[in-house]
Design a protein around this nucleic acid. Structure first.
Lengths: 216, 216
DNA sequence: TAGATTGTTAATCGATTAACAATC
DNA sequence: TAGATTGTTAATCGATTAACAATC
């Protein structure tokens, strides 16, 4: 299985398809689905659904469609969701704390996502040593050790803007190559590292453009 | 000023440019900037910077570049950021609460964004009536009245997945046409309504794809 | 004036859609 | 077999990049 350079646009749609398949699997009454139906439920054209899936193999049967359970399983394999994935959260402010709770609650029981919040980090010595939801808060110095021990693969950055790059660097040096970044900063990272930026202010400013000018 | 159908890809980059200009304006020592420099700082090619800006007018001078203060001001006008914009937050769980604090803190002093968190809503009768950061929590029934009175233009949805569509509908009916959606649900809205989806689990599942399989 | 950089047009690149032969 | 739907190739569409004349 060596899929060189599949466009990120494709990868972004796979979790969308997976979500639809999860729902169908839970309801339990649909064993087969066509690219047509899957597309409608995921908000994607049927041709694009087939093209996306075809990058990874031949998962369907002509004249029949895709087996829900089988395709779901293949997507889980492709997306690397079969094994437990350890995640760290850096920055235990109010946002970080909320994200910690949110993730714990949300992914504890999600069928196709085996996420484990394995560590919390904060630069504030007053916080280090205390616990959130039973997980101890550690200092930034412990990053290399804890990342290695807990096999952490993804870090959620919820630190202030001016600390984000430094903290990101620490995790990258420790071997983490996936960052979910809540800080309003464009992180400079090596090509091998993937960043998912979640930038509230950019989104809100974008939305403001669509507010009708008259009534404003 | 009637700019018909400018691509959303363009609109998404404007807040990026604005952020760079804000920083330069704060430092105060750069009065002029070329598309080259602006592009580097925003992570965009210089030709694209010029093309994006040219959709809205001729803001630069040949051989000179763009005036930082002037361009910043024009972008603020284009993005509708000159006047205070009232925002509501629906769903005062731990995530909603954190977002409320986060927004209040972050945008209280940001120079080019005049956002006011004008109302909180929650369906839980036990929460209705209490306050967060001095803002009372209201019931969903009060949406039409409060939206009209407070001139709310944007809603941040931080409600559970199964409530999201209903709450969104209520705000759309009340006249709100911009939604920042934290619920892991694809909202069905009229064409006139803009949704910015912030979907943690999709992002995390996407990142998981890039986790090296060997070490996993 | 000479040098620099814009605004804009043409060329390229990539992603989506349409079409259809293969086949279940 | 007939009907349906895949996997895939070709056509279209849109967005980015390159190039350059206009001009400060």
């Amino acid at each position: 299985m060596r899929w060189n350079k599949i466009s990120d646009a494709v990868i972004r749609r796979l979790p969308l398809y997976l979500r639809v398949l999860d729902e169908l699997a839970n309801e339990g009454d649909t064993a087969l689905i066509s690219s047509q139906e899957l597309g409608i439920k995921a908000g994607v054209g049927p041709a694009l659904v087939r093209k996306d899936l075809a990058w990874f193999g031949e998962f369907g049967k002509q004249g029949v469609g895709y087996d829900v359970g089988f395709l779901r399983n293949e997507l889980r394999k492709i997306l690397n969701l079969e094994q437990e994935m350890a995640v760290a959260l850096a920055g235990v402010g109010s946002l970080g704390r909320a994200l910690a709770r949110y993730h714990l609650k949300r992914y504890a029981d999600t069928d196709s996502f085996n996420l484990r919040l394995a560590a919390l980090f904060d630069s504030d010595p007053a916080k280090v040593g205390s616990e959130v939801e039973g997980i101890p808060i550690r200092s930034l110095e412990e990053i290399p050790e804890v990342v290695a021990r807990e096999q952490i693969k993804i870090v959620i950055l919820a630190v202030p803007a001016d600390a984000a790059q430094d903290v990101a660097n620490r995790f990258v040096r420790a071997g983490v190559n996936c960052i979910l970044n809540y800080a309003p900063v464009k992180l400079q990272v090596p090509e091998t590292v993937q960043v998912a930026p979640v930038d509230l202010s950019l989104e809100l400013q974008r939305l403001a453009y669509y507010v009708p000018k008259q009534t404003r």
